[in-house]
């Protein structure tokens, strides 16, 4: 199969500062909301993540959601976790997704099922996220399935993404894990939501020391925090995330907390953009997707660039 790159990959290769959004599929069989959100993000984001049963809660599948995004004229990034499928099901879904026109995928381990709405469900974890990345890369580059059998024609040629968390401990190990993922075949990264810019900068220093920013594209995860209440909850109850006290106080003291939330997010994006080695931002506006255009505009991310050879405006 000839090289048929995604818009996302093309923009990275053009050296553009890329913007991606995220849609959490609904807990229903209705794709209208996804199409609506995709329409909202069109022209403001270059591609959109579709989560795979996020927080281990049953939702409309990420591949079906990707189809809705494609129909709305956007470009999907399909998330794929290792929790719910064995290697047979994963490879089957990869073939299916690629046949439907999806070209980007993000490989994750997945939240443990005990925290979701089916805590007694069996998990799979036949492969972990690094093995999953390796599997997708082998399908693409070596044209073989995980068992070694050749894919005779039309192999899936995904642009392979992975995640990195600069805020989990032990801090130094995070970079090694990232390097392992790059060695396995990861081409781009999306990080955990960043509130502590100082720690992110220190992490990026370690990334640069090992030259990882030259081997993969790194996107910094940001989130507009709607209110002081949301910030306080995340500070206290969401692990693997550092919410500084100053941010909570700033939101608390603001007259219009939502406007302040946008302002903080815009400041973060402008700061992140200056950090060497960062190739884009991933905006996770959980339940507040309609604010993304405003953030993109205020952060000076518009107009979105065109990808050479790809006419469609993605979202």
């Amino acid at each position: 199969m000839s090289e048929n790159k995604s818009r996302l990959q093309t923009l990275f290769e053009q050296g553009e500062f890329v913007v991606t959004g995220e849609i959490g599929p609904p807990k229903s069989a209705n794709g209208e909301g996804i199409r609506k959100h995709a329409e909202h993000l069109k022209g403001y984001c270059d591609a959109t993540n579709l989560t795979d049963n996020q927080t281990a809660i049953v939702r409309l599948s990420s591949i079906a959601a990707g189809m809705h995004v494609l129909k709305a004229g956007g470009e999907p990034i399909i998330q794929m976790t290792c929790r719910d499928r064995n290697r047979i099901a994963i490879q089957s879904d990869l073939l299916g997704a690629y046949s439907l026109g999806m070209k980007n995928m993000l490989c994750l381990t997945g939240d443990h099922q005990s925290f979701g709405n089916h805590p007694t469900a069996a998990n799979v974890f036949d492969v972990d996220s690094i093995q999953l990345i390796r599997m997708v890369k082998r399908m693409k580059d070596e044209k073989v399935f995980a068992c070694g059998e050749a894919i005779k024609k039309d192999e899936p040629r995904f642009f392979i993404g992975a995640v990195a968390n600069p805020f989990a401990d032990p801090f130094e190990v995070r970079v090694y894990r990232m390097e392992k993922k790059i060695n396995a075949g990861a081409q781009f990264f999306q990080t955990q939501i960043i509130f502590d810019l100082e720690r992110f900068e220190r992490w990026m220093e370690l990334v640069r020391e090992r030259g990882l920013h030259e081997r993969a594209y790194i996107m910094a995860g940001v989130m507009p925090v709607k209110s002081a209440k949301v910030a306080a909850y995340m500070q206290k109850n969401v692990s693997g995330m550092i919410v500084p006290d100053e941010m909570v106080t700033r939101l608390k003291n603001a007259e219009d907390q939502q406007a302040e939330a946008v302002e903080i997010c815009v400041e973060q994006i402008k700061h992140i953009r200056k950090i060497k080695g960062v190739s884009g931002v991933h905006i996770m506006a959980v339940g507040w997707e309609e604010i993304v255009p405003s953030i993109a505009e205020k952060a000076g991310l518009l107009p979105r660039p065109q990808a050479a050879g790809i006419a469609r405006v993605a979202g």
Binding site: T55, G116, V230, N237, G287
Partner: peptide
Amino acid sequence: TMCNVCWAEWDFTCPICE
């Protein structure tokens, strides 16, 4: 996901998406 007692502490408004 929270128990009703904890939801009450957040006035039954989601602390992430409101």
